[in-house]
Simulated assay, not measured.
Amino acid sequence: MFQIIGIVLLFAMVFGSYIMAGGKMDVIIHAAPHELMAIGGAGVAAFLIGNSVTVIKATLGGFGTIFKGPKWKAQDYRDLLSLLFLLTKTMKSKGVIALEAHIEKPHESTIFSRYPKIAHDHFAVDFICDTLRMMTMNLEDPHQVEDAMEKQLEKHHHEAHGAAHALTQLSDGLPALGIVAAVLGVIKTMGSITEPPAVLGTMIGGALVGTFMGVFMAYGLVGPMATRLGGVLDEDHNFYKIIQAVLVAHLHGNAAQISVEIGRGNVPSAYQPSFAELEEALSQMPNE
Rank of each mutant, 00 (worst) to 15 (best):
M1D: 15
M1R: 10
L9R: 05
L10G: 09
F11C: 09
F11P: 12
A12E: 10
V14S: 08
I19H: 08
G22R: 06
G23I: 04
K24I: 02
K24R: 11
D26W: 01
V27F: 01
I28V: 14
A32K: 03
E35V: 09
E35Q: 11
M37I: 11
A38Q: 12
G41D: 14
A42H: 04
G43V: 01
V44Y: 06
V53Q: 12
T59H: 04
L60W: 06
L60T: 05
G61W: 01
G62F: 00
T65F: 00
I66L: 08
K68R: 14
K68L: 10
G69Q: 09
W72H: 12
W72E: 10
W72C: 06
W72V: 05
Q75R: 07
Y77G: 08
Y77R: 03
L80V: 04
L80A: 05
L84M: 09
F85Y: 11
T88P: 15
S93D: 15
K94T: 01
I97V: 11
A98S: 11
L99A: 05
A101G: 14
H102D: 15
H102N: 15
I103A: 06
E104Q: 09
P106H: 02
H107E: 15
E108W: 00
S109I: 03
S109R: 03
I111K: 03
P116I: 01
P116L: 03
P116M: 04
A119I: 03
D130L: 05
T131A: 06
M134I: 00
T136F: 01
T136L: 03
M137N: 14
L139E: 13
L139S: 08
D141T: 01
P142T: 01
V145Q: 05
E146W: 00
D147G: 02
D147R: 05
E150Q: 11
K151V: 14
L153P: 15
K155V: 13
K155E: 15
H156Q: 15
H156S: 12
H157V: 04
H158Y: 06
G162E: 12
H165G: 04
L167R: 02
Q169R: 07
P175R: 03
A176I: 08
G178W: 03
A182R: 06
G185W: 05
I187P: 13
T189P: 14
T189V: 10
T194D: 15
A198K: 07
T202I: 06
G206R: 07
G206S: 11
A207R: 07
T211F: 02
M217L: 11
A218T: 07
V222F: 01
G223D: 13
G223P: 12
P224N: 04
A226Y: 03
G230Q: 08
G231W: 00
D234F: 00
I242W: 02
I243K: 04
Q244H: 08
V248K: 04
V260P: 13
I262T: 10
R264T: 06
G265P: 13
P268Y: 01
S269D: 15
S269I: 08
S269L: 10
Q272W: 01
Q272V: 01
S274G: 14
A276W: 03
L278S: 10
E280A: 10
S283A: 10
Q284S: 10
Q284W: 00
P286F: 00
